[in-house]
Every structure is written in structure tokens, then in C-alpha cells.
Design a protein around this nucleic acid. Sequence first.
DNA 1: ATTTTTTAATTTCCTTGTAAACTATCTTCG
DNA 2: CGAAGATAGTTTACAAGGAAATTAAAAAAT
Lengths: 164, 164
Amino acid sequence: MGAIAKLAADPAPAVRLGALGQSLGFLLRVCQVRVYDQFYDRFGDADLRPGEFSLLWVISQNPGIKQGLLAQTLAIKPAHMTKTVRRCVAQGLLRRVIPEDDRRSVQLSLTLLGTDFVEANRHNFFGADAYNTHSLTEEEAATLAHLLRRFCGLSESEPERTSR
Amino acid sequence: MGAIAKLAADPAPAVRLGALGQSLGFLLRVCQVRVYDQFYDRFGDADLRPGEFSLLWVISQNPGIKQGLLAQTLAIKPAHMTKTVRRCVAQGLLRRVIPEDDRRSVQLSLTLLGTDFVEANRHNFFGADAYNTHSLTEEEAATLAHLLRRFCGLSESEPERTSR
DNA sequence: ATTTTTTAATTTCCTTGTAAACTATCTTCG
DNA sequence: CGAAGATAGTTTACAAGGAAATTAAAAAAT
């Protein structure tokens, strides 16, 4: 369950991590667990999963995006994507359209309800009072984001809407 | 299945991430998926799981550590810790000792085989040729590690043993 | 034009990880 | 002491996520 459950009780003996404390893999995992905890603290009641908001968000930014491309973008496996999409459709947030020019694929777009949902949760997710709190300064957080983007090979700049 | 499967084939249409591209939660998750992929590329054949080496490593650095403290340190849930420990014991890498002064708890230490195992895999895990490759410079990687430690509330300095 | 190959998504089955309930032991306090 | 509560770990029962095989449709080859 959320929260790190650390009741400042006993001293919690120090543990030597050795080189592990420098391991990006280890640190990334620990940070990610922390983020999920925070996410559930904030959204758990709303029956929302971490991946779900991201999914809806990206669709809102790219209406009609194909399911496979979305999976690739969010690093979600296709098999899992199918389930998540079904779930959102069942909740009335998402619409699946099979395009005539390629009937194997699925194009996704938000329903009106979905649009409202994204709008309603947007500030809890991004925004100053986002679920994801930490003790970094604004600048540090920006540096961290920058390094993470480079680490996983995400280009810094967004594709522009109008041009391209 | 490791590898990002990106065969430089078609242009892979750009996707607008909007604010998500700045979200630490999202970026952390994507990076973590990437790290796991790399881990399985390197260790998958050896029937080793990501958490397993870390577990053995920390025990090697803290012989006799109690299972609960280890779980807390590695951000692994107790229920899962039980399974992982059992698995390592079954593989002959780990020894469980019930201490006389508190018979509820379990103290963990490596077997000789476990010690060898850690020694053998140490360089694949840490080291210059570690599984975890990326395009960051040494300095950037260090900064990233530093920020991640701060993000998840890990103190920068290790408890000193002797000198190291 | 028909077969072959590739591609997009889905289904089935399995692994990993977790919550909640449970057991055993230790601690506290009447 | 002995009941009440706390703590450490385990069990069970389930959810999340993924690999491999499967289906359907499009593209390429013959």
C-alpha cells in the first residue's frame, strides 16, 4: 500500500549499499517504486492506474494515434496495451476506430467523458501540486528530467504541432 | 524480451508527449523499463532476475542482515522477499539463520557458492562494461545518480566500515 | 492472381509482485 | 505471571505485466 511507512520510531540501522548506491539501475528502480507509491496515495481512490492517465493524455495530444505506436511510446507491451485500452473503453473514456485504409490497426481517441477526465486530473498529474513530490529544487528537477530523457533516448524537443 | 526492437526501418511518426515529456514519474518509468531490458539482454540466460543480484550483493555487504531490513532497503515487499529468498536458498546461494535472541526474524548470509556468484557477476553489474549502457558521459551519469539518490531520499554517504 | 511474408492486434498462459489474513514470537503492562 | 498488543515473516489469493502462439489483414514475391 502507498506510503513508505516510516514512523520515525527506531533508528533503522544503516545498511551498506556499496557500489549499488551508484548503480543507475538500482536507483531508478527505487525511485520508480517511490513514484508509484505517491501515485496511489493521490489517485488510488479514483481507481486510476499509473499507466492509464498517461495513456489518455497522449491520446488527447495525438487524437487517432494507432495503438501500436502508443504502446511503443509509453513502453507498454502490446499485449498489455490491449487490456488497458479495453478497460478505458469499458469506462467510456476511450473510442476505438478501425480505419478503412488499414483494417488491422486501431485508432484511438478520447470520448467527451475522456476529455473531461483528462482535463479534471491534469493538474493533479502535472501542475505545481502534482502527485509527485520530492525534495529537489525546480532546477534540479529540470536537470533530472533532462538527464532521464537523454538516458532513455527521448529527444529533448517535442515535434511541433503546426509544422512538420 | 530484451532490446528495444527499433530496426531503423520506417520513420516512426513523432508523437506529441506534451507535459508528459517533463514528468519525472513518466520518465523514470521509461528509463526503468529500458534498464530491465538491458539487464535481461545481459543476464537473462543466466536465469538471474534484476532484484536477485542486488539482494545477494547487499547481503554480501551486510552479512547477517535481517530479512525485513533488507526488504525495506531494496524497496521489495516482505511477501515478495520471502519468495526471492526461498529461491536463492534453493539455488544454494543463501543461508537463512533464525537468531536465538529473536526467533521471529531471519538473518541472511551468503553461502560459499553465493560469495563466488557475487564475485563472478560483480563486473557485469557494476564495472565499466556493466549491463547498463547509456549515452551519458561519466559526469552526467554521476549527476544523475546524485539526483536520483536525493529524489528517493537516499543519503549520499555510505555508513563507513573501515576505510574502503 | 495466388502464394508467401510481414504487420497489428489479440488471446492464452505464465511470471512477477502485492494486499490481506494468518502464525509465531516478543513486549508491555495490568 | 498472563492477557493485550506489537512485530517478523509466511501463506493465500489475486492483479499487473509479458512471451509466445494465433488471427486477420496488408504488402511483396512469384
